[in-house]
Write a protein that binds this DNA or RNA. Structure first.
Lengths: 133, 133
DNA sequence: GCTTGACCTTCCCATCATTGGAAGGCCCAG
DNA sequence: CTGGGCCTTCCAATGATGGGAAGGTCAAGC
């Protein structure tokens, strides 16, 4: 069994050592076994879990949802409908935020388009912010 | 001069009383004049500033950028190019985040589409997270 | 004038996920 | 046996906001 210190596990999983400790502290990860000197050690299974977490985070899942996904991963009796529900709820959140930011961007782009961007003070962007309709 | 307490100013501007105090604490707003009893009071000009801030926040500007925009608003010798540069930097940030989230959404939507969502455990979403390529 | 209730004040804490740093201990190569 | 690279824990900060406690102020009604 190849055993890794937290630094090696971090490098191998893409999760920083700081975060690995934090995930353990909040209960997302079980306490890692320690060497005599108190060092945490991680085996291949642990690395697999860390990569799972990393992937879930990369897809924008919160740590809370990531914990749920981990639970479902481990649960051989899971229903795929539970996983799908989590994913679709997250998709809906993403869509809502994207829509919100797109609206901001559209407004700003429209204002910036009409701004000369020269040495003069006149600026439709400032005018909009100031409420000069 | 109509003078408002912080609650009235909050209602009139859409910025919560908590946030008005916070903006003052971090220097985004100058210290408001106080009544004998220590209550903050806000005049029409202050309300205008608060609405400006509110609008900038609604467009997604950070408090730091909002401070810059306020400075430019007050500066009669501003160059509209400075305002435009701030806006375009923010547009670029928004675009970057939107792209990032869109990529997440596309991936998730693709995975969810192939998930049966029934009582069985088989699930392409979990498989992806687990790194089963 | 006094009470009552709505409002104000400051101060501290929580969120979410992550990073930074300080002080001190462990481990291995030279 | 020493140096330096890794590890440990603990504390603090980020950004923008909300929540709440303890206590002071104000205005209306009696």
């Amino acid at each position: 069994m190849s055993m890794n210190t937290i630094g090696a596990a971090a490098k191998a999983s893409g999760v920083s050592a700081k975060m690995i400790r934090y995930y353990e502290a909040i209960g997302l990860l079980p306490p890692a076994p320690r060497s005599e000197g108190g060092y945490r050690h991680y085996g291949p299974t642990d690395l697999h879990v860390l990569r799972f977490i990393r992937r879930a985070r990369d897809l924008g899942f919160s740590l809370e949802n990531t914990a749920q996904l981990l639970r479902l991963w481990r649960d051989r009796d899971r229903s795929s409908s539970e996983v799908k529900a989590l994913a679709e709820a997250h998709i809906a959140e993403l869509r809502a935020k994207i829509d919100e930011m797109s609206a901001m961007m559209r407004t700003l782009a429209h204002l910036a388009e009409h701004c000369h961007g020269d040495n003069r003070p006149d600026c439709p962007i400032i005018d909009d912010l100031a409420g000069c309709h």
